[in-house]
Amino acid sequence: MTLFGYRLPGMSSLIIWGLLWEIVGQAGLTFFIPPLSEVVGTLIEVIQTAAFQKALYETAYAFIAGVFFAIVIGIPTGILMGKNRLLDELLLPWVNVFLSAPLTALVPVLMVLFGFGMKAIIITTTLFAIWIIILNSRAGVKQINRSLVEMAHSFGASPVDAFFKIYFWAALPEILGGVRIGIIRAVKGVIIGQLLISIVGFGALFELYSANFLMGHFWAVLIVLFALAFTISEFLAYLERRVSYYAAKR
């Protein structure tokens, strides 16, 4: 978007939306939307409270653990699927099923199997993230140029060398793409898990706020959450661009 010859920065329209929010809030149209300025004031208060910090810590813990398992299990599974046809044919239908299945329906099962706590939330997070990581790692290995592999063999690379020096790097852009989408899904998963198992993290915090009709607090936490999620996603996209610069040229 250019205005009077100037290119407006990408996200600058959010300022307009912020202003609109402030106006709607000031006009007092609805109790549910307090003015943005008030929310920002609350935000500064809220992030200093122990309850918020505890929620943030618990969420970060579940999120990091969930993502860790998704990556550590997902990438090798995907690479193996890409290299072994039988394994691929056996697993791929299920990966596709779980990729698009409503995973929220599985949370109650996790609750009865693993208790109403951190464990169930971590597994929920992993379940949200892992399928796309598997699928992308598999795709990354599948697309590796045969002549690259043959080149390695013709120069006498051992299978192990070929794996670490060729397969991994050649598949890295796709793998990273999968990890990025997986992590964005994990953010959603960890919040959904906490909402359904609402005695931990932000789930508990939201219960507290809605029981007391604390709208400003609600919006403040939402802004923090959304901003964090957006930052994570942009940061990963940036990393992916940095590392995958050679992807287009393969």
Partner: peptide
């Protein structure tokens, strides 16, 4: 509009449910 939907896409919108 794009920024709104880009943020929505990245954000855990489920958090809006209690609201």
């Amino acid at each position: 509009f794009s920024p709104i939907f880009i943020v929505m896409q990245a954000a855990p919108l489920a958090a809006l449910i209690p609201l």
